[in-house]
Every structure is written in C-alpha cells, then in structure tokens.
Amino acid sequence: MTDAPLLSVRNLRVTFPTRQGLFQAVRGINFDLGRERLGVVGESGSGKSMTGRSVLGLIRPPGRVEADRMEFQGQSILNLPERRMRKIRGQRISMVMQDPKFSLNPVMTVGRQITEAYRLHRRVSRADAHAKALEMLRAVQIRDPERVMDSYPHEVSGGMGQRIMIAMMLAPDPEILIADEPTSALDVSVRNEVLSIMDNLVRDRGMGLIFISHDLNMVAQFCDRVLIMYAGRIVETLPARELHKARHPYTQGLLASLPRLDAPQDRLPVLTRQDSWRDGDPIAPHADTDLPGGLR
C-alpha cells in the first residue's frame, strides 16, 4: 500500500450564486482515493458530478470551490492557477463524460482529438503521436483503428465513441480517471463491454478511478468502495462488497428500490427522503475497510 492517497479531499464545498441566494451543490465532503475504484452514487443533483469537476478545477466562476484540503499526491490542487492546473488536467487526472455524442468535437477527426491531448503533454512528433493513438484505439478494442482515426464523431456509434473517449483520456497515462456516468447514454448492450474495457485499462495501469453513477448495482459490481451522496453530502461510505450491510436509511432505501430477481416483490418501495439526512453525520466506514483498493 502506498503511503499517501492519490487524492485527499477534506471539507469540500462547491457553491453557486443564484437569484435566491447561494446554492450549495457540495456541502463539506471528505474522501480519500487510493489506487482503487471508488464509486460515487447519488441521484441527480446530489453533487456527485460537481465533486468530480471540482477536482479537475472545472468549476467556472461564478461557481466557487472551497476546501480545507484538496491534495493530489501530497500537492495541493485547490484553486490552482490555470496555468499549473492545465499541467495536471489530462496528464495526471482525466475525465470521461456521459455522452460521446456531445463530448467529442463534431468537426474534428477522431485522430486529431486523440493526438492533440497526447502531443500537448508529451511533446512528441506527429508520427509518434499517431502511433500512440493507434495503440490506444487498439487497447480499447477498436478493430479498424486506421479508419476510425480519420472518421468524424458522428460516423461512429455511441459505444465506439465512448471507447474513443477512453482512449483519448488515457493516452497521456494519467494517474486518476474520473468517469462521470460513462455508460448512461449508451445502449444497454454495449454498457458492460465499455465498462470492462475501462476497468481493465484502469487496473493494468494501477490508476485510481472515481466512478460517478446513479446506478447502485453497476457501482457495486465494478468498484471497490462506494460513497453514497445525498444533497451535497456523503451520507455513507461502504466497501462495495458490503453494500447489503448499509446502515444509512437512504442507502437502504436505494437498495430496496432496486428490483431483485432472487427476492421478487409485487411493488418496489418508493424512496423516501428525510430532511434530517441533509445535515446528519455521515456514517463512517469500518476502520479496517479504509482504502481497500490500496491493499490489493
């Protein structure tokens, strides 16, 4: 196990001014990320995406990010000047977004989009970047990489688009990948394929993965550890394998509202929410399950 976590966040707050006053999207959350796969689960508006984006310094004014600590490998990355943040973005921490239809530039070839990021950080020749891009496309199991390099995003399918996105974001060998709902825009048939490709790459490279999703099942399947977010707070942290031992009523509610083949129900319970959860203390994980991924 490495000593320092890859990413360490304490009391992170993200606020946006609105006409009705300050809106607090994230309200003081703490977490550490090791070389593990960390799932972040919550319903829409729970602040899970904002958490991911604030790590990358992507919250743009008038939005504000504050924290007692936000460290990447021991170095503070909280509100870093743009110039220094750009050295970290893409190269050290990267992100895959929800829908490749929108997250790839529609008027640039796939090849250019992949090599652009790689060349920026590695300062290699055009030919080397081209070779690297082909290698990455092969790594995400694209069969005809030469042809795909020259195609435009609208010419590829959603599943392939997301694999291209993964290839592009992993090309500069970052240490952390933030995957923000990476499969929710995809057809169900290709979801698992994309997930396992991403999972393999992340594990082979010993990266840290923050997997943001609203799908508790999927997170339980693919992650080592799960953060449950509600209304901008983390309400519970659990090892993925022990999800059934969840103690927070919200997590229990989420679990109960999923259909299960082994325990069929006539009617799924509706998720109830209580205002007290908004400010209650998060339920701490057992001490021995801290950073399980790092123990691997």
Binding site: L56, L58, R86, K87, R89, G90, Q98, F102, N105
Partner: peptide, 12 residues
Amino acid sequence: AEYVTTARVKGL
C-alpha cells in the same frame, strides 16, 4: 457544449 469541457479536461 460538452466537448469544450472535454478540451479543458485534456489540459488545453
């Protein structure tokens, strides 16, 4: 648009 965020994530 989302691809602008992508470009920023790349470190451009």
